[in-house]
Design a binder for these strands. Structure first.
Lengths: 111, 111
DNA sequence: TTATTATGCATAATAATCTTATGTATATTT
DNA sequence: AAATATACATAAGATTATTATGCATAATAA
């Protein structure tokens, strides 16, 4: 996604959180929303996004609905009930990750 | 390292920062220090650590010195000048990563 | 005293995640 | 008419890590 490999493993969290906030979104919309929210800092590549969406769907975290808008296909995704639970888990994991990394690299955050 | 994949990509940052703080350390010592600082939250596996140390050395970020202590080998690593610069870069990247993720998942962090 | 755990390094096979490249197709802007 | 934007998809390759295995010595527990 960027020159930094730190984002590796974060895509699922990002997708779930955006869907948690926006009810339903389609793939391309997600890429644009991420670009907007991060002021271009982070660009989701399609090669990462679509397989990730398919995986989340296969795991039962997302439901899909295909619509045709302006003669173009859109696959709208929304969270299932399990998906909502998973979102909470992923956000907790992110907070835990940040806290752990701070303890490691920022001495004043150590207990 | 954990159940969370968010740590993927963070190992280099962790190693560099610990060496930045402790002057010289050997591999096993790093695993123990990480365990200690994170209260067992994060455990560095050897299969990840040693290849990572070798790579950092090959890239010119670490110098190595082999010592025998208590009849057992220890490979002490320390930062080169380039390694110190890389440490600063990696720490900046971490802060940027955290800021970007907060903008994405924490609405109140959005500008 | 023998077995387990701790210390210490190393690598190969496998898995997960992502980048890059490519493909298809329509709509809009230059 | 050409380039860019919209929209989805997948395959090849790279990166990073897990798991499993191997070797070797020291210290502790059974």
């Amino acid at each position: 996604m960027k020159n930094s490999n730190l984002y590796k493993g974060s895509l699922t969290t990002i997708i779930l959180k955006l869907l948690n906030e926006h009810d339903k979104m389609y793939g391309y919309e997600i890429t644009q929303k991420v670009k907007e929210l991060t002021k271009g800092e982070l660009k989701i590549t399609e090669g990462a996004l679509y397989p990730s969406l398919h995986k989340l769907e296969a795991e039962g975290f997302l439901d899909v609905e295909v619509l045709k808008v302006d003669n173009r296909m859109r696959k709208y995704y929304k969270l299932t009930e399990e998906g909502t639970k998973e979102t909470v888990n992923k956000l907790d994991e992110l907070e835990q990750y940040i806290a752990t990394m701070r303890a490691l690299v920022n001495p004043k955050f150590r207990v």
